[in-house]
Simulated assay, not measured.
Amino acid sequence: MGFFDFLNEEPNQKEIPKKVRGDIDTEFAEENAHLDLRQEELDIHKNRVETGEVVLHKDIVEEEQIVNVPVSHDQVVIERKVIDREPTTEPITDEETVHIPVTAETIDVDKHTVVTGEISAHKRSVQETEQVRDVLHKEVADVETHGNADIIKED
């Protein structure tokens, strides 16, 4: 006599609902019966998403610079002396000319470019820990006994 055979002997037999396991419908278990117990587990996937960006670029600013540069130029000093009427043998002519070149320093300004610094950027990965919380569902077995049923649990 099997475990569930005593159910057939009751005069007011209750209808037992069908349980579905896989493709098999069972109303009554023979000698052995079992239930599959299931539980949920977290599937965690990480995705890399763009959260911002850093842009490096150069701007041109103007800065006026004032530099004092010493320069020189020639001055012609005209001096007159009074001579006490000395006699000369030279005739008076209009062809006598003296040329005195006059010079001055001028300033030419050119520009040239020099490197004064460098800026660089690189990325690095920083490891952090985030906590994930979710409610998981789990099937647990509930064994009910009715009447005088002798049950031995083996784990």
Rank of each mutant, 00 (worst) to 15 (best):
F4L: 06
L7G: 01
Q13W: 02
E15M: 05
K18R: 12
K18G: 06
G22L: 02
D25H: 04
E27Q: 06
E27R: 00
E30C: 01
H34R: 06
H34C: 10
L35H: 05
D36I: 10
E40F: 02
E40Y: 02
E41F: 06
H45G: 08
R48D: 10
V49Y: 01
E53Y: 15
L56N: 04
L56D: 05
D59S: 13
E63N: 10
Q65F: 03
Q65D: 07
Q65R: 11
I66Y: 05
N68Y: 05
V71I: 13
S72R: 12
Q75A: 15
V77Q: 15
I78G: 01
R80N: 14
K81M: 10
I83E: 13
D84Q: 11
R85D: 08
E86C: 06
E86D: 10
T89Y: 09
I92R: 12
H99Q: 14
I100C: 00
P101M: 03
E105I: 00
T106S: 14
I107G: 00
V109I: 10
V109R: 05
D110V: 13
T113E: 15
E118Q: 15
K123T: 14
K123F: 07
V126K: 11
T129C: 05
E130N: 13
Q131Y: 07
D134E: 12
V135T: 14
H137S: 14
H137A: 11
V140K: 14
A141K: 05
D142G: 02
T145K: 08
G147W: 00
G147L: 02
N148Y: 08
A149D: 03
E154P: 03
E154W: 03
E154Y: 09
D155T: 12
